[in-house]
Amino acid sequence: MRGLAAIGLFFALLGVGAAHAVTPDEMLKDPALEARARALSTELRCMVCQNQSIDDSEAPLAKDLRLLVRERLANGDSDRQVMNFLVARYGNFVLLRPPFEWQTLLLWGLPPLALVAGLIGLIVAARSRPTVSAEPQALSGEEQKKLAVLAKAGE
């Protein structure tokens, strides 16, 4: 659904109109608790939607999850506990930010690795390569011949 901003919209949109996510009746009375619920909701995936958080989705499942999150929070769960509960129930698929595990090693590791490798590569290249400060090199025999030809032609 959210693919509207790219060409995939034609493909991704399957005829579901946009509507509301969080509705007034779901919201908790305690603003601090509600704020925590909202923050958690943005990290949780609506599992029947395409890449939407439960905070954004109007799907019934997302509503159920929102209510569940609020129920746990109201019962005094910490954010961590709520997350663990949902992961135990639905697996890592429910997390929009995957945990750092061996299966996600490359996901988390590749970008910083590429950056560090690139930086090291550049430093090595800069050290090994002669820079503008290096002495000008003498002309090779072939170049001197070419120069001679040019000089002759120029006369």
Binding site: L4, A6, G8, L9, F11, Q52
Partner: peptide
């Protein structure tokens, strides 16, 4: 323009969703 379109059409005021089709562009 796609981002603005999504912003006013999808109804929750977001402008970039890191959706795969957005990432594709």
């Amino acid at each position: 323009m796609g981002s603005y379109w999504a912003y006013y059409t999808l109804g929750w005021g977001g402008f970039w969703f890191w959706d795969p089709v957005e990432n594709a562009s």
